[in-house]
Amino acid sequence: MKTEFKNVVIFLGPLLILPALFVIWPLIELMVLSLKHKVILFEIDRWAGLENYQYLLGKDARFWGALGNTLYFTVCSVGLELVLGLMFALYLRFGKESAWIKVILLLPWAIPNVVSARLWQWMLHPEVGIINHVLLTLGWINEPVLWLSDPTLALNAAILADIWKTTPLITLLLFAGLQRIPETILSAAKVDRTPPVRFLFYILLPQLNPMLMTAMILRGLDAFRVFDVIYVMTGGGPANSTETLSIYAYRTYFQSLQFGYGSSIALTQVILMLAMTWIIMNAFSSKWDRS
């Protein structure tokens, strides 16, 4: 028993201490800060009680806007990535698989978000961007589209960049899932001459379900905290139409210097994210416990 415990400490010690030190402590500090008015620069530091939350949930239209943008971004980008990723994966599995196509698919995923964001920003440049140039040449548009400075388009442009970057990951995850489907099921369907649509919805997707869920959850949580792509492409503008929760919190910290209020935004985001995780946990009950 004693060596047992020693072993647990040796193997799990570092794993549990590091996050405790660098994640749990910061979260506690975040909680404390969110109950304060704190502007370090001006040496303001006093208790505010729940005032920050009252303002945040009650009067702050900007917070609700940011939440809406975050949800829109999450739903659109993850949804489209799953559809596209599934298409690519199906093609790789049943069309023609090739190592090269996987390399090519992996490229966008492997480059830094900042690079892909700048890349798209450049391609979407209103005056000299390649996308406007092509669309103008084809005659599909009559004047340059202001992809990143039109409040109705900017968030969609960021979604486009995100889809470009992360569809490959989804493709590979789903491809892996497809490969795990037993050959016997596939050949049975072939013998039965199951129509393709039926085959997809009644045979493949149920088999693929765990993988689809995993991809959706991981990407969903990742999209919910989106920062880099948007920060680099639009910085939250125009007219805050691309401001997500992470960006709003960041701006409140580092531009408004309000550490108290920024913390209450960030903590609200964490709580929302934990709620999402909790829902997942219930959806996947006892997945990790050995039966």
Binding site: A239, S241, Q255
Partner: peptide, 22 residues
């Protein structure tokens, strides 16, 4: 003293008012 946050915020609304989303 709070010009920077004020400006950041005003930019958004001026821009929104000019582009017509507000």
């Amino acid at each position: 003293p709070l010009y920077i946050p004020i400006s950041q915020s005003m930019q958004a609304y001026i821009s929104g008012a000019l582009s017509g989303i507000y």
